[in-house]
Design a protein around this nucleic acid. Sequence first.
RNA 1: GCCGGGGUAGGGUAGUGGUUAUCCUCAGGGAUUGUGGUUCCCUGGACUCGGGUUCAAAUCUCGGCCCCGGCCCCA
Length: 409
Amino acid sequence: MIQKPRGTRDFLPDEMEYRRTKEAVMRQAAKNWGYREICTPTFEHQELYTLRSGPGIVKEMYTFQDKGGRELALRPEGTAAVLRMFVNEAKVLSRPIRWCYLSDCYRYERPQKGRYRQFWQFGAELIGADTPEGDAEVILLADDILRSAGVTYDLHIGHLAPMRHILRDLAEDLRREVMAHLDKKNYEGLAAALAACGRADLEEPLTALLAARTPAEAFSICGDVPERERIERMVQILDSQGLAYTLNFGIVRGLDYYTGMVFEGFAENLGAENQIIGGGAYRLAKLFGGEDVGSCGFGIGFDRVMVSLGDAPPAEDAVVAVVHTPESRDYAFSVARAFRDAGIRTELNLLDRGFGGQMKHAGKTAAYAVVAGVREAESGTVTLKELSTGAQKECPVDEAVDGVISGWR
RNA sequence: GCCGGGGUAGGGUAGUGGUUAUCCUCAGGGAUUGUGGUUCCCUGGACUCGGGUUCAAAUCUCGGCCCCGGCCCCA
């Protein structure tokens, strides 16, 4: 027997239908905000991802060389390809551009709860609206999508400007180190790093900034920054919409990728991998050879959404099982077609089973049995039987279809 | 890459070196050739893989693979 590759999953129909239901809800929410769905290739030139994330990322990706010698990689996330697509194709589209996607992504990582080597990411990108209104819209959209899907989560929103302002005098590599410590809440490491470079004076404002829960508090610590008005306007919009969130100026989210607003969300029922969404403002287009246009977006871990929501409820669709005999086979196919044309999931017996066997099978797999035997074929009727109650009646096909649609009664 | 816990039919399980590996569920068939569900009968299906110890391994041991939890990472 061949096992599936490590970190991959199979989905049976009950779970798959549940996933599709949630996908549809999320797509619809995005659509309502004007975010239209796009699709990019499953694999791209490796360079797209190393440009964005550095050469070290290769060991975390599924990479391969194709028969033409091209160095390719299965996509490890959604944003890079979307911005690549924007640079390639969307220069003439009127802005802002609102796009969303649901992509299968691949990362060579150790699987654990909520983390797989093949996973799905629902993302949205707003390109060319580098404004506080744009930042606010992306956050509100993300919240709408997650709540529509039924997820309960904690939302944390921040902005990189205050922290970068405090760290403005530090050398680039030291700044990265300090921010990495802050990201991991490693305060001992933070103190040691600052002391080592003679900037222990920064420890107090940094820890105070992490505790700040309003823009006013943050600016009283870091002083005035050019982004102040933008941050305040964004917060004002979010508050006007009654959004539940925590302001957190300690959010770092990777190092050089995000340029302004950043946000994260954490859901229940997940283990160590409880981050369900991450996003923020960034400027990637220029890196990929386009103009320097500001963008803002997020990625939702779709599989984590599903884990957080719990087990799939069993499917409830009415199912009709058509029971027949070899002599009435053609009639049975016609009867099944009538039910299918009405949008009813209908399964016709395909095996060499007697009436009793067919009814037995119908009792396990269907809500209704529709008998299309010789007798019915001659009179153009069917015998409709509700399997939960055992009630049955012989009637014309149209009437039987209506009966199933209206739930028998 | 690292640490820990696991792996017995499709699912859930019993089995601390010794007959043909237990039970439930499930699936297929029959009792019942135009009426299922209950019941009864029959059938099918498993020791994760490989090496080692032993007269004898599901059981002890080592390693691989896979699963689960955590670390690292998380674009």
